[in-house]
Design a protein around this nucleic acid. Structure first.
Length: 229
DNA sequence: GCGACAG
DNA sequence: ATCTTGTCGC
């Protein structure tokens, strides 16, 4: 089974969560990959509004063919509320449960959210990367912080996201004439590599395959386990 | 002080 | 995030 490091407790108050981020941000490493990646995993959770039950899942695919190698889904519970900037405290606990059930060890992990494109430079992708101790990056559908110039309309075009003068990520076009996705490194990876991997996960949709497939998985799980109430 | 605000 | 049908545009 896949393992991870339990760096700290998840039962914290919003104030303590921010303090933890300020402490953990210094451990994040933005650098090229140490070894070429052959497999990539997507992570996501689904839930019914107003309910604490969450359906978390992870789908692992081969980078060259995008064929699914493994997928796991778990039914868990999220106690921490959704607070902009503190998403990791709501989603990571359940995702770690799913992670522990994996038989395969993904070379890199993609998250539905941001990495360094965060007010304190430690979004869910960066935070999870520290626990998983492996390359991670974020690919979100909307911006949390940062400004950018509209990239060219063709797939592959991108422009840097800036925040307080620094480049924190990129607005990347994954499909012609369609809104861009927002890519940012999480941990043990750099922006150019994160952009490259995102483009390599093309399935013809705006959302890259790891995230898209996982989203479908957890939604199916939620609906079947919620069908009759 | 007034907005903005990943999923 | 989730709730939902049709509709405008390439």
């Amino acid at each position: 089974m896949a393992t991870y490091q339990q760096l700290h407790d998840w039962i914290v108050t919003p104030t303590e969560a921010v303090a933890l981020q300020q402490q953990l941000r210094h451990e994040i490493r933005i650098q090229p990959l140490t070894k070429p990646a052959e497999t990539i995993a997507g992570c996501d959770i689904s839930f019914n509004k107003f309910e604490e039950t969450v359906y978390a899942g992870i789908v692992v695919l081969r980078l060259d063919t995008l064929e699914v190698i493994e997928e796991v889904g778990v039914i868990s519970s999220a106690t921490f509320p959704y607070v902009p900037g503190l998403l990791s405290f709501r989603e990571i606990p359940s995702l770690l449960e799913a992670w522990s059930k994996l038989k395969t060890e993904p070379d890199v992990v993609m998250f539905d959210g941001h990495g360094t494109a965060h007010p304190r430079r430690i979004g869910i992708a960066s935070h999870a990367g520290l626990f998983l101790n492996r390359p991670t990056f974020g690919c979100g559908k909307s911006v949390l912080v940062g400004k950018y110039d509209e990239p060219a309309p063709e797939r592959g075009a991108w422009s840097p996201m800036k925040h307080y003068g620094e480049t924190i990520g990129a607005a990347l076009r994954t499909k012609n004439r369609v809104n861009p996705v927002y890519v940012s490194p999480g941990h043990l990876i750099d922006l150019p590599t994160a952009i490259d991997l995102t483009l390599r996960c093309n399935g013809g949709y705006r959302i890259p395959e790891p995230t898209r497939r996982t989203h479908n998985l957890v939604n199916a799980l939620r609906r079947e386990r919620t069908a009759g109430r």
